[in-house]
């Protein structure tokens, strides 16, 4: 129940974001945004919307929408290589807010056979990082997943490597290691059981499971 509410909010947020942005993007993702189909569709919208947020961080509409989710709005760090160890921790926000809200979106996606953080998800990870860093009592399980191609054991290791990439990123953001636990489900828990690249893309992910 809680999950479906969350997804609704995600979908709505994404729709607002898209409407506020360039019309071309809104049209591209329009099908997904208006569809009332469950989980997978909503997730897809978020995926499509995310890069727009990053690129147009200065646009008023985006800023106002994003602020609802997390007050720590700032320009996303420049896209460099996706190898996590090369990242520098983005600077902390100059101003302080009374409380950092936990982001609504609890999943980030990865490329095939890759465990590097896609630049488009840095903003979301920053929001989770800030929430965890300012809420020392919060604990999260970072659950890595892979798509079904390849062997189950390799995918188990690959899922863990993705969880580790998120863990390392959040650690740089100031999250205490004992707030995070990494697990991997490999290819065992797909969210989309289809055989298309779009299905596979939804399954290559790390989920935040707050305890």
């Amino acid at each position: 129940m809680a999950k479906s509410n969350l997804l609704k909010i995600m979908a709505i947020t994404a729709t607002i974001t898209l409407v506020g942005c360039a019309s071309k993007t809104a049209t591209d993702a329009g099908e997904g945004a208006t569809s009332t189909e469950a989980a997978a569709t909503a997730t897809e919208v978020v995926e499509a919307a995310a890069p727009v947020v990053t690129e147009m961080a200065s646009a008023e509409t985006v800023a106002s929408v994003t602020e609802e989710a997390a007050p720590a709005v700032e320009a996303a760090p420049e896209a460099t290589e996706s190898f996590i160890l090369q990242f520098k921790a983005p600077e902390k926000p100059a101003y302080s807010e009374p409380a950092v809200v936990r982001p609504m979106v609890n999943v980030v996606y990865f490329d095939f056979d890759k465990a590097g953080i896609n630049p488009e998800f840095r903003k979301l990870l920053d929001q989770h990082g800030d929430y965890l860093a300012t809420t020392p009592g919060a604990k999260v399980i970072l659950a890595g997943h892979a798509d079904e191609r390849g062997t189950r054991e390799y995918n188990l290791a690959l899922g863990e490597r993705r969880a580790y990439a998120v863990y390392a990123y959040l650690k740089l953001r100031g999250v205490a290691p004992d707030q995070m636990e990494m697990v991997s489900y490999g290819e065992e828990m797909p969210v989309s059981v289809g055989k298309s690249e779009a299905d596979y893309a939804k399954n290559r992910r790390v989920e935040f499971k707050y305890q």
Binding site: I141, V183, S184, Y185
Partner: peptide, 9 residues
């Protein structure tokens, strides 16, 4: 290999 409820193997 067995997974527990939280994904630990």
């Amino acid at each position: 290999t067995h997974f527990d409820n939280d994904g630990r193997t």
